[in-house]
């Protein structure tokens, strides 16, 4: 049963992404694309002639996608949170290397920014898992989901997670890695056709990845988890519709000043 969910994970993320595009359009009072638009895009990209810069570049995109899928699968299988975070980090680094491997300035800038983003959000993810450990006594997701009351004990940590969700789902104010108007998608810039599709689909997996962290805060009640995911989803899109993109260094500063402070205070309170 769980294997079916793992295989369906990109599709689930795609639905989430499609729903988000419709929601965002409605927030801007326009009609927006059809709900299944991400899948149309996927199928169309399969049909394009592929242009390759060089083989490792293309391969790294595929590796990025599959490692990301592995980390999402690990979440579904209820593995150790720390493994998952490092698997995800590994996936990100593959993307960064891919960005550096071509001779395009935009791609290099994208990689630089991707690295700074990792610096900004990775500690928070670790703090969050430490928080879970302090409350439930385990890093295993299966164990974490057996206890509840995270939201009452780790409210600031949840707020910290809220701050970094826009970074991961590439929404303003923190969509510096993609930064369409400045660096035309950053690391994506040299990809095309099928290989771009892997990056396009890995965006779906990122959705699943980060929203499952939100879901964990629901603890043993799956309803609370679902509700939290829906709430955060709406909130992130509202913020996306109300903010401009900040600069990379500003983002690092903001995240370290708010999210980092929140999580340290929260952890300190829990430990004491």
């Amino acid at each position: 049963m769980i294997w079916i969910w793992i295989i369906l994970a990109p599709i689930l993320g795609g639905l989430l992404y499609g729903g988000e595009r419709v929601l965002r359009a409605r927030m801007q009072r326009r009609q927006g694309p059809p709900f299944l638009q991400p899948f149309y895009d996927m199928f169309k990209l399969l049909d394009k002639r592929t242009l390759i810069i060089h083989a490792p570049h293309a391969l790294l995109a595929i590796a990025h996608f599959f490692v990301l899928w592995l980390s999402v699968a690990a979440i579904f299988l209820g593995w150790n949170l720390l493994y998952i975070i490092f698997l995800h980090l590994f996936a990100q680094l593959l993307l960064v290397v891919a960005g550096y491997s071509v001779r395009s300035v935009y791609s290099h800038l994208g990689s630089n920014r991707e690295l700074l983003m990792v610096v900004a959000y990775e500690p928070i993810l670790i703090f969050v898992s430490v928080g879970f450990y302090l409350v439930s006594g385990s890093f295993e997701i299966a164990e974490i989901l057996k206890t509840g009351g995270y939201l009452t004990q780790l409210p600031l940590l949840f707020a910290a997670l809220l701050v970094i969700v826009p970074i991961k789902v590439k929404k303003s104010p923190f969509d510096v890695g993609e930064a369409h108007q400045e660096i035309v998608g950053g690391v994506e810039v040299e990809y095309s056709g099928v290989f771009y599709e892997f990056l396009y689909m890995s965006r779906f997996l990122e959705y699943i990845f980060i929203y499952s962290f939100v879901y964990l805060f629901g603890g043993d009640s799956s309803w609370a988890g679902m509700l939290l995911v829906a709430g955060v989803f709406l909130l992130v899109n509202l913020a996306d519709n109300a903010t401009a993109r900040v600069r990379t260094l500003q983002m690092v500063k903001i995240v370290s000043m708010t999210a980092m402070a929140f999580s340290v205070i929260n952890l300190a309170v829990v430990v004491l």
Binding site: M27, Q28, Q181, A244
Partner: peptide, 16 residues
């Protein structure tokens, strides 16, 4: 200007 600062919603609002 709003679009280039990464504020898509404002772009849509003003263009509308």
């Amino acid at each position: 200007t709003a679009e280039n600062a990464g504020f898509e919603a404002l772009f849509m609002q003003i263009m509308g």
